[in-house]
Amino acid sequence: TKVFYNGTYVEFNNPEKAKKYAEKVAKKVGGTFTEKNGQFHVE
């Protein structure tokens, strides 16, 4: 499961961990995250 952010991504074996990371990054940058095709995108 990949989490895309700012033109790069971090890959996780565990979708649950990926979601938590996406939430954390989104919170940090004051943005939101969306799930597309089983991957997370932070905006």
Rank of each mutant, 00 (worst) to 15 (best):
T1K: 05
T1D: 02
T1H: 14
T1W: 15
T1R: 05
T1Q: 05
T1M: 07
T1S: 09
T1N: 08
T1A: 08
K2A: 06
K2T: 06
K2D: 01
K2P: 04
K2S: 05
V3K: 00
V3I: 03
V3S: 00
V3P: 00
V3R: 00
V3G: 01
V3A: 02
V3F: 02
V3Q: 00
V3N: 00
V3E: 00
F4G: 02
F4P: 00
F4I: 06
F4Y: 14
F4R: 02
F4K: 02
F4Q: 03
F4C: 07
Y5D: 02
Y5A: 04
Y5L: 07
Y5Q: 03
N6C: 12
N6H: 10
N6P: 01
N6D: 09
N6V: 04
N6A: 10
N6W: 07
N6Q: 11
G7I: 02
G7F: 06
G7L: 05
G7T: 04
T8R: 12
T8G: 12
T8C: 11
T8W: 14
T8Y: 14
T8Q: 11
Y9P: 03
Y9N: 04
Y9H: 07
Y9I: 11
Y9R: 03
Y9T: 08
Y9V: 13
Y9L: 06
Y9D: 03
V10D: 03
V10G: 02
V10F: 09
V10C: 13
E11H: 10
E11R: 08
E11F: 10
E11Y: 12
E11A: 11
E11S: 13
F12L: 04
F12H: 02
F12D: 01
F12S: 01
F12R: 01
F12N: 00
F12A: 00
F12M: 03
F12Y: 03
F12C: 07
N13R: 12
N13M: 12
N13P: 13
N13E: 15
N13Q: 14
N13S: 15
N14C: 10
N14F: 05
N14Q: 07
P15G: 06
P15Q: 10
P15L: 11
E16C: 09
E16I: 12
E16M: 11
E16D: 12
E16S: 10
K17I: 14
K17G: 09
K17D: 15
K17M: 15
K17V: 14
K17Y: 11
A18Q: 01
A18D: 01
A18T: 00
A18E: 01
K19N: 04
K19A: 09
K19E: 06
K19I: 07
K19C: 07
K19P: 01
K20W: 12
K20G: 07
K20R: 13
K20A: 14
K20E: 15
Y21E: 03
Y21L: 03
Y21V: 03
Y21A: 03
Y21M: 03
Y21D: 01
Y21Q: 02
Y21F: 13
Y21I: 03
A22I: 01
A22F: 02
A22T: 01
A22D: 00
A22L: 02
A22V: 03
A22E: 01
E23V: 08
E23C: 09
K24H: 14
K24D: 14
K24N: 11
K24C: 15
K24R: 13
K24V: 11
V25C: 11
V25K: 07
V25E: 05
V25R: 04
V25A: 06
V25S: 04
A26I: 04
A26N: 02
A26G: 03
A26Y: 02
A26S: 07
A26T: 03
A26M: 03
K27A: 12
K27W: 08
K27H: 11
K27P: 00
K27R: 11
K27L: 13
K28T: 11
K28F: 13
K28V: 11
K28S: 13
K28E: 15
K28Q: 14
K28M: 15
K28G: 08
K28I: 14
K28P: 02
K28A: 14
V29L: 12
V29R: 05
V29Q: 06
V29E: 05
V29N: 07
V29W: 09
V29I: 14
G30M: 06
G30V: 04
G30Q: 08
G30N: 11
G30T: 04
G31R: 03
G31Q: 04
G31V: 05
G31L: 06
G31C: 07
G31A: 09
G31I: 04
T32R: 10
T32M: 10
F33T: 07
F33R: 03
T34A: 08
T34E: 07
T34L: 11
T34K: 11
T34F: 15
E35C: 12
E35G: 04
E35V: 12
E35S: 07
E35I: 12
E35L: 09
E35R: 06
E35T: 07
K36D: 06
K36F: 10
K36S: 09
K36G: 05
K36V: 14
N37E: 11
N37R: 06
N37D: 14
N37Q: 09
N37C: 11
N37I: 04
N37L: 08
G38I: 00
G38Q: 05
G38W: 03
G38T: 03
G38M: 04
G38Y: 04
G38F: 04
G38P: 00
G38R: 04
G38D: 05
Q39C: 08
Q39P: 00
Q39D: 15
Q39S: 13
Q39W: 07
Q39K: 04
F40P: 01
F40V: 03
F40D: 02
F40W: 13
F40K: 01
F40M: 05
F40E: 01
H41V: 12
H41D: 04
H41L: 09
H41P: 00
H41N: 06
H41T: 08
V42N: 01
V42I: 14
V42A: 01
V42C: 03
V42S: 01
V42E: 00
V42T: 02
V42R: 00
E43L: 14
E43P: 03
E43D: 09
E43K: 10
E43W: 14
E43Q: 13
E43G: 09
E43H: 14
E43N: 12
